[in-house]
Design a protein around this nucleic acid. Structure first.
Length: 277
DNA sequence: ACGAGAACCTGTTTGC
DNA sequence: TGCAAACAGGTTCTCG
């Protein structure tokens, strides 16, 4: 799916179209995505003004007037596509599941695999929402540091790859950015989280922060499904050092290694066997 | 309690 | 070329 940088890019793309605008219409074309939509979902969106578009981890949060927040997760293949009303087609495309309109624009939620989800929650109760309550600190916030990470990894017998995918430890990482952060920190994805030295963690925490900042700067990574809200492609995929580069030479200065692909708990991991230890 | 693996669903790519 | 298997950016549940 879209990981943190892609979700942030989508959010930024939607801000001008949605913040301070009223939803003149809302339609849901099926009762469920990964989870059932809440009661009277479309009716509760219609007529509301979007006061603020925020992001928490991989969730987009739209605060509405009337004290409810619209929670959106894009899953693996979800997209939020923005079209000016004048250009909006009359026909609904395949896998267009939710459509909202403002005076000036249409936003379509399209999701072939339906691993995404939407919900509505009282804004003052968001922190206790079951999907959000257990999520760890934002990696770009002050709450995330080497000291924090060391504390959370202590005693964990799981590979660092799996620990970084665990959203309760740190928010927003997925398969791509874990691979890229571990390459930057010169750590093998198979290393056991609890056995990492303090020095390793001191490299890892800033590597996570930096790869996410770089990716946001580039507008995220466009692979198969992901697009920015305006349909533009992000270009961080051209900056991948190891992700999806099996067999390629390691791009690190002076390293003669090649990128390897292994499978960890059912998912591909990519790393350089020479410089990542 | 913890970790690995399966499951959810559809589309695309790869391999025989 | 055609078909089947493998694989895909996430999360959650089950099982050992």
């Amino acid at each position: 799916m879209p990981e943190l940088p892609e979700v942030e890019t989508v959010r930024r793309g939607l801000v001008p179209a949605l913040e301070g605008r009223r939803l003149t219409s809302a339609r849901a074309y099926r009762p469920d995505l990964r989870l059932p939509l809440p009661e009277r979902f479309a009716e509760r969106l219609e007529g509301r003004e979007v006061q603020r578009l925020r992001r928490r981890s991989k969730y987009i949060l739209a605060d509405l007037d009337g004290d409810e927040t619209w929670i959106i997760h894009l899953g693996m293949s979800g997209r939020l596509l923005l079209t000016p009303s004048a250009d909006a087609p009359a026909e609904r495309g395949p896998h267009d599941h939710v459509v909202v309109e403002t005076e000036a624009a249409r936003v379509v939620y399209n999701d072939a695999r339906r691993f995404g989800l939407m919900d509505l929650c009282r804004t003052d109760a968001l922190e206790t929402h079951r999907l959000l309550a257990r999520i760890g600190p934002e990696p770009l916030s002050n709450g995330f540091s080497a000291a924090y990470l060391a504390d959370r990894l202590r005693g964990r017998a799981t590979p660092i790859k799996a620990a970084l995918l665990d959203q309760t430890i740190v928010a927003g990482l997925g398969n791509i950015y874990v691979a890229e952060a571990l390459w930057r920190a010169r750590l093998r994805p198979t290393r056991l989280a609890g056995a990492l030295s303090r020095g390793s963690i001191e490299r890892l925490a800033p590597a996570i922060r930096q790869v996410l900042e770089d990716a946001i700067e580039a507008g995220g990574s466009s692979l198969k499904d992901y697009r920015q809200a305006d349909g533009e492609l992000g270009y961080f995929q051209h900056s991948f050092r190891v992700y999806d580069r099996e067999g390629a030479p390691c791009p690190r200065e002076g390293c003669r290694g090649r990128v390897r692909r292994i499978v960890q708990s059912g998912r591909s991991s990519f790393y350089c066997a020479a410089c990542q230890r």
